[in-house]
């Protein structure tokens, strides 16, 4: 049900310090989300491709994940150009595609693809426990990080529990349909998942207290300092500034079409 295809790997990106990667992923994503200039967006998309390539991501997995937003983008391209007010670009009968609408759809498509790829290349390339530690070092509250790790750990356990319950339902002849009976069965399934989760939580909590848990996970491997991290940081800062300059028309200005 859940897999992390990018988390393990041995590319240059995988070996960089997770704190640096997380920080710059957030910084670049925010910058890209606010862009309005097409040359800056194009460049950001290029950077995203470059990062994904240097992380040596599996292309099929990348496409699979991109296809989840492509459905949304397709809907966007159907709805926005028709409903957005502005100067008409084409007309067919009573349907009007506006120039501004097409503009906006193109912007959203470029930006969301770029942000998604940056995220896949820099953040999805670490395991969740590493991300948790990186977030802690980047001063996210300890309790929240603890909650994140706890939730992650139990997704798999609860997922298996769900599979077991669902198998039991199917053996007893359950077939999903649009009926009250079907929804009732799902409601009881969810209810049972919550009950089991809550009982498990009680046991886990007792076991943790028994072992002297004091609200902190200790980790044996620490982040290794390396000059490569600083090269990465320098490059990312240059890219950040480059995109900023393009956005403000100071570098390769492009007239909106």
């Amino acid at each position: 049900m859940i897999n992390e295809p990018f988390a393990s790997g041995n590319s240059i990106v995988h070996r960089l310090d997770p704190r640096f990667r997380t920080f710059f992923a957030v910084l670049l994503s925010i910058e890209v989300a606010l862009l309005k200039d097409f040359s800056a967006m194009g460049f950001a998309l290029l950077v995203a491709f470059f990062l994904a390539a240097s992380a040596r991501l599996n292309i099929r997995e990348v496409m699979k994940r991109l296809s989840s937003i492509f459905g949304f983008l397709l809907l966007l391209w159907i709805v926005i150009p028709l409903t957005y007010e502005g100067t008409p670009a084409w007309q067919a009968g009573w349907l009007t595609w506006t120039r501004e609408g097409i503009h906006l759809s193109a912007q959203i498509s470029l930006k969301s693809t770029a942000i998604l790829m940056i995220f896949m290349a820099l953040v999805a390339t670490m395991t969740l426990s590493t991300l948790g530690r990186a977030l802690k070092r980047l001063s996210m509250p300890g309790k929240l990080v603890h909650l994140l790790l706890m939730t992650y750990r139990y997704i798999f356990v609860i997922g298996q529990e769900y599979q077991r319950l669902y198998t039991a339902m199917r053996i007893r002849g359950f077939r999903p349909s649009t009926s009250l009976h079907s929804y009732k069965t799902y409601a009881y399934l969810f209810g049972m998942l919550f009950v089991r989760a809550s009982k498990r939580a009680e046991r886990v909590n007792q076991a943790m207290i028994l072992r002297g848990f004091n609200g902190r996970f200790y980790s044996l491997d620490d982040f290794q300092p390396s000059y490569k991290n600083w090269i990465f940081a320098g490059t990312m800062m240059m890219i950040f500034t480059g995109i900023l300059l393009m956005e403000n028309g100071l570098l390769w200005p492009m007239k909106p079409f």
Partner: peptide, 26 residues
């Protein structure tokens, strides 16, 4: 939410995560 409840909230959050992956016929 004190530390005593983190396990409970976390495990319930994962139950919701799993439940929201399940498709229901309409």
């Amino acid at each position: 939410m004190d530390y005593e409840r983190v396990a409970e909230v976390g495990i319930l959050a994962s139950a919701f995560f799993v439940a929201s992956l399940i498709n229901v016929r309409i």
